[in-house]
């Protein structure tokens, strides 16, 4: 199944990216290249090989359940363009 411009538009929409026509066709050819590489990998016989979830052959370390952070609200609120009553403000989201 060949990748079409319409697929690029859909992926861009899901990623909330606005692409110009030139950027779309560029994205189309680079993503098509990546998919070709994936096709090449898919062709390898992996019977009996355990799927790999991560590039490192190690397991996750667990942290103790301890509260280590204190409130830095005033500092963090300053990073946002708009705040009120301790809340971050965003344009009204309608359900």
């Amino acid at each position: 199944m060949a990748l079409e411009l319409k697929d690029i538009e859909n992926i861009a929409h899901l990623a909330r990216l606005q692409l110009s026509p030139a950027e779309k066709s560029e994205a189309l050819s680079s993503i098509a290249n990546i998919l070709a590489m994936i096709d090449q990998m898919q062709a390898v016989d992996t019977t009996g090989v355990e799927p790999l979830a991560h590039g490192f052959d190690a397991s996750q370390r667990l942290r103790d359940d301890v509260v280590t952070e204190t409130s830095q609200r005033e500092l963090l609120l300053k990073l946002a363009p708009s705040t009120d009553q301790g809340l971050f403000l965003v344009p009204k989201v309608l359900e």
Binding site: S82, D84, Q85, L87, L89, V90, P91, K92, V93, L94
Partner: peptide, 14 residues
Amino acid sequence: SLHELFPNDTGIDL
């Protein structure tokens, strides 16, 4: 998300 608190904005409590 707090939709009712402000007329034109949604407040976010994380």
